[in-house]
């Protein structure tokens, strides 16, 4: 999540970036439902989903190599199960598992890469994800950059005094934890100073346009069509 490239992509302009985050979340779910229920034998359907994704990536004017590489990050987790299936003779299912995993990751990535985090979180909240969960994601996202910056500076400081060793790395982790906890209490004090009383207020909700509905319906129909026809 703390990926600066994805953050930058999410603030570009395109027909997909302009869509309401709720429409994109809905479209993603339709796509995931179609992919996950596709029969392992129907390789042509997976090609169809890939084409669909490619069309959307092109429409969103995102760079193919960077996006496709990041979507592969989830593959090692699925690879273990795929290997098991492969060696128990279920080669089609092993291949399909990897394909489904990759397509799903690419779809989810596409949502994050075309939607600024604040809009995404607001949409999740409107869609009744519990406020606490939304806030936890938000704070994680907001301070991931701050804490990773702190970790980087500590690593620089350590390596400019020699090689960073495992033992000192463990100690550094403890210091990082202590600093993060001190920062958390600093943030809380700053919130109290501005009258925080336990309730997080939210500004105006986003507007839902006809184009958003059209996008959602088109995406759902396209996913369903690939699922049924191929």
């Amino acid at each position: 999540m703390g990926d600066a490239a994805i953050e930058r992509w999410s603030r570009q302009q395109s027909v997909l970036h302009r869509r309401d985050a709720r429409a994109k979340i809905g479209a993603l779910f339709a796509f995931l439902a179609a992919v996950s229920t596709t029969s392992p034998d129907s390789q042509i359907a997976f090609a169809g989903y890939a084409l669909l994704l490619a069309a959307v990536i092109a429409a969103a004017r995102l760079p193919f190599p960077g996006l496709l590489r990041r979507a592969a990050l989830g593959l090692p987790f699925a690879a273990g199960f795929a290997l098991l299936l492969w060696f128990s003779g279920e080669r089609a299912r092993a291949l399909a598992l990897l394909e489904k995993c990759y397509l799903s990751a690419a779809g989810a990535l596409l949502l994050v890469a075309t939607t600024p985090m604040p809009e995404l979180l607001r949409a999740l909240e409107i869609l009744h994800l519990p406020r606490t969960v939304v806030l936890v994601i938000h704070f994680l996202y907001r301070y991931l950059f701050v804490i990773s910056g702190q970790a980087r500076r500590m690593r620089w400081a350590a390596s400019s005094r020699g090689r960073l060793q495992f033992r000192s790395a463990a100690g550094a982790l403890a210091v990082l934890f202590a600093r993060s906890s001190a920062r958390a209490s600093g943030i809380y004090q700053a919130m109290l100073a501005r009258g925080f009383s336990g309730q997080f207020p939210a500004l105006a909700p986003p507007r839902w346009r006809a184009a958003d509905a059209a996008f959602l319906i088109a995406a759902a129909l396209a996913s369903a069509a690939v699922r049924m026809a191929l």
Binding site: P118, L121, H138, R142, M191, R194, F196, Q199, P201, L203
Partner: peptide, 17 residues
């Protein structure tokens, strides 16, 4: 001190409270 996703939201945090 700046903990909300956008500037406008962050600055509006106090008045909303």
């Amino acid at each position: 001190q700046l903990f909300l996703p956008t500037l406008i939201e962050d600055v509006a945090f106090g008045p909303m409270n």
